[in-house]
């Protein structure tokens, strides 16, 4: 079974994000780039599917500038068989629909039986790409999955997602799109041998002309990013617990208007 994983390269979770000199983007100097953590769950799940079935191919796909190759390389180091990099300037600052069109075109070329991705990328947090890709392909989609099991004949998958206090189980025909929620699995660390082997694996580069997608400007236009005002310091309410609690309730009601 061929499984395709859509991954996005994002700033490390520890990054102190600052608005850049162009107010529509963040300042990228000094940023460490990583594979978005939810996408790592997707990669891990794809590898487990291949391992469980004993055969198959895992292809990691990403769009973005040259540096994105490093994210793909780390998917290869984890164990993906090969990667596809869409290097298209139109993807810079693209809206999710544009990104989804490009990715859907790659999926059509590759014709996998299953597409996995994260429930959202942790930079823009739109959470839209997985569903949009499925819509463009006319495939079923299940988001935020916590578990999955593909039928032995490879025709269907049973996947579960957590809802308030319960697990919702669905059967979907393949091909389909599944997006990964935290808890789906524990992603492996690449082994040193995996890292050394990754440089021998193929990263296929696709340019603007290779996909036949007309990218006619974003439909969602980013106006600007605004830094949040600094969070005011916390306040300690002194005194005996009894009085302090009374004061806390008063403050929450009258000043914060939280209750």
């Amino acid at each position: 079974m061929k499984v395709l994983v859509l991954v996005k390269q994002v700033p490390d979770t520890a990054t102190q994000v600052k608005v850049g000199s162009d107010p529509r983007a963040i300042a990228t100097t000094g940023i460490t780039w990583i594979v978005s953590p939810y996408d790592e769950f997707a990669v891990e799940e794809a590898l487990r599917i291949r391992e469980k079935r004993g055969t198959g191919e895992v292809v990691a796909v990403s769009g973005g500038p040259e540096r994105v190759k490093e994210a793909l390389r780390s998917c290869l180091a984890m164990g993906a068989d090969r990667a596809v990099h869409v290097l298209d300037p139109a993807l810079e600052g693209a809206d999710t629909l544009t990104t989804a069109r490009v990715l859907a075109a790659v999926i059509q070329q590759e014709a996998p039986q299953l597409v996995l991705t994260g429930r959202q990328a942790i930079d823009d947090d739109t959470g839209a790409v997985g569903a949009q890709v499925a819509e463009l392909l006319g495939w079923p989609c299940l988001s935020w999955i916590m578990e999955e099991a593909i039928a032995e004949d490879g025709a269907t998958v049973r996947a579960g997602r957590q809802v308030e206090g319960a697990l919702e189980l669905f059967d979907l025909p393949l091909p389909c799109v599944l997006t990964a929620q935290k808890g789906l699995n524990e992603p492996r660390y690449p082994t040193l041998k995996g890292i050394m082997g990754a440089k021998k694996k193929e990263i296929k580069e696709l340019g603007p002309g290779d996909l036949g997608v007309n990218v006619d400007g974003p439909q969602l236009e980013l106006v600007r990013l605004e830094a949040l005002p600094p969070r005011p310091p916390g306040r300690i309410i002194p005194g005996e617990p009894k009085e302090a609690v009374r004061e806390l309730v008063r403050v929450l009601r009258e000043e914060a208007k939280a209750i």
Binding site: T32, I34, K69, E70, R73, S74, A77, Y189, P190, L192, I195, M196, A198, K199
Partner: peptide, 17 residues
């Protein structure tokens, strides 16, 4: 090199995690 950065990143994630 890309490989050296990957080794560092992996070791860092392992050490932190």
């Amino acid at each position: 090199t890309e490989e050296q950065r990957l080794v560092r990143q992996t070791a860092r994630e392992f050490a932190e995690g």
